[in-house]
Structures are given as C-alpha cells and as structure tokens.
Amino acid sequence: MSELVDLRTSGRTAVITLRRPAKRNALTIELCDLIRDAATGAVADGARSLVVTGEGTSFCAGADLDAVYGDTFREALYGMLQTLTTLPVPVVAAVNGPAIGAGTQIAIACDVRVAAPTAAFAIPTAGNALAVDPWTIRRFSLLAGNGAARAALLGLEKIGADRAHALGLADRLGDLDDALAWAAQMAELAPLTLAYSKQVLNTVFEPELDAATAAELGKSFDACWASEDFAEARAARREKRKPVFRGL
C-alpha cells in the first residue's frame, strides 16, 4: 500500500503494519491518514477482523515531534483513532514493543491488546507540554484503572507488559502470531453481534460529553497546544536541553 504502511490479508483478517522503524514508527500526518485509509479499505474489501502492529522493535513511539504542527496533525491523529474505534469489526493491537504517547492512543483505540514482553505503555505529555483529548484519558482510565492512569499522566509512569496484563490494559501476553490467531478466531464469529457489542460498549461506557463540558475541556486542551510551554518544549528538544516550564 505504501512504504510507510503495509496492508496484508491472512484469511479474513487484515494486518496493518506501521513501517517507519528508523523513527520507531512515530506518527506524521501522512502516516495517520494511511492507517485510517488502510483500516477503512480493508473492511470495505471484506475483512472480518484487523490487527495493527509495528515494524521493528517499537509499536509506535508517538507523534514525530519534528512533524507535529498544530491543528492539521491533531485532526489527522484523532480522525484515525476514531476510525479504529468505530470500525464494525474487532481490531487487535499486537503491541510488539514500546507504545508511547500516540502509540498508546492507537493501542487503546483498538478493541483488545496483545502485548509482547518488550511492550510498554506511556503517555508522557506532561514532559513535553502536549495534551491528549478527554476521550484518551477516559478510555485509558477505563482500561488501566484510575490509579494507573493518574500515575501515567501525572507521574509519567511507564507500564510494562506484565503489569499492563495484570491491570487489564493488555488482554493477553504474546507476539504477533498470538494476535493473529485471536483475530482469526474473531473473524469466524457473527459479524452483526460483534458490531452490536462494540457499539454498546462504546456508547454505554464512553458516551458523548454534554456540550458545556466538552467546550470547557476543549478550551483547556487547545490552550496546552498553544502555550508558551509547548514552544519551550520544542525549543528544548532542538537545543538538546531540559525544558523549563512556567505554566504559560
């Protein structure tokens, strides 16, 4: 499909592989769009389950901070995440290595996660003055538990494969073959029932926020991305130094 994304089929299962190993599969606008298009295209072509994984030693190292440019990237990222979440077929994340920031977002956008021994989950936005949307925080908390979510978001704690499995963030421990076997099993199940179950789980446990709350949280979210601290984080990255945040 592209040098950045590989799309293959195995029976009724489509396998989407992120292919930027030199950058640890870090996301750009183009890569987000390619993942979204691969997923929707696979389902349109008849795939009954999907597996998402990364090439090399990382699942996804998050956003490519050299290519994060405001609204355009965010629209591409969250459009892709929403696509994975709302597909009518089961989506399995084969987390073959670290899933950091947006990598964790991809993993939790999938329905279930199979974690290799080298897998790790983290959302280190407080270290670079970025922010993830309320959906991400809520879904992460639902899967990992509120305490683990607070430790990850406020204390930058990284969650390894074994602990992720114990918490419920990872549903199974295993490699890509294990993920493929589980996805193949799902592909033989009743499609309408699977789609209905996903719809109920998403609607009941992750309902839309009321307009006032959504507006208030959206304003705070946007403020993080427009802050002087975000600019400071980018400058510190270029200058290879520790950022100094001022809350501005």
Rank of each mutant, 00 (worst) to 15 (best):
L84N: 01
G101C: 15
P124L: 02
D229H: 02
A215C: 11
A183D: 06
E232C: 03
P207Y: 10
S227Y: 07
E157I: 05
V43N: 07
L192S: 14
I35C: 05
A179N: 01
G101D: 11
R234N: 11
A170L: 09
L156P: 05
D6F: 08
S220P: 02
S2V: 07
D6C: 09
A214V: 09
D33L: 14
L81F: 07
G97V: 04
K198Q: 14
D171V: 04
L87K: 04
S10Q: 12
C32M: 07
A187E: 04
V89Q: 01
D45I: 01
A39M: 01
V52F: 00
D177I: 03
D33W: 08
T203Q: 13
L189N: 05
S2G: 09
G160R: 11
E30R: 15
W135D: 11
W135Q: 05
R74W: 04
V89W: 07
F121W: 09
K240D: 11
A181E: 11
A122V: 11
G41Y: 01
A183C: 08
P21F: 12
G218Q: 08
V15D: 02
D6V: 10
E55D: 13
A148N: 00
P191H: 01
V95K: 01
D177S: 12
N146G: 15
R139D: 08
A38W: 02
L209C: 07
D171N: 14
D133A: 12
G41E: 00
I106S: 04
T13G: 02
F73S: 08
M186P: 02
A236W: 00
G218W: 00
E239D: 13
A38M: 04
A235Y: 11
E188C: 05
T193V: 15
L65C: 04
A183R: 03
R237I: 10
I137D: 02
D133F: 04
A152G: 05
D229S: 00
T213C: 02
T118H: 10
T136I: 14
K240N: 12
L34W: 09
T203D: 14
A44K: 13
F245T: 03
T104W: 07
Y69K: 13
R24Y: 13
A235H: 14
L173P: 05
A164G: 15
P90F: 09
W225Y: 12
A129M: 00
L4N: 03
T104P: 07
G218N: 03
E30P: 03
I16Q: 10
A212F: 02
T72C: 02
A14P: 03
G155N: 05
G155Q: 06
A38N: 05
L27M: 03
A115G: 05
C110K: 04
V92L: 06
A76H: 03
I123W: 08
P191M: 05
I106R: 08
A166M: 00
W225L: 12
R48F: 07
R20M: 02
S220Q: 15
G70V: 04
E216P: 06
A119K: 05
P191D: 00
T86A: 12
E216K: 13
T57Q: 14
L31S: 03
L87A: 01
D64P: 08
R246E: 15
D222C: 10
F140Y: 14
D71V: 15
S49P: 08
A38L: 06
D222T: 14
R8K: 14
A215R: 15
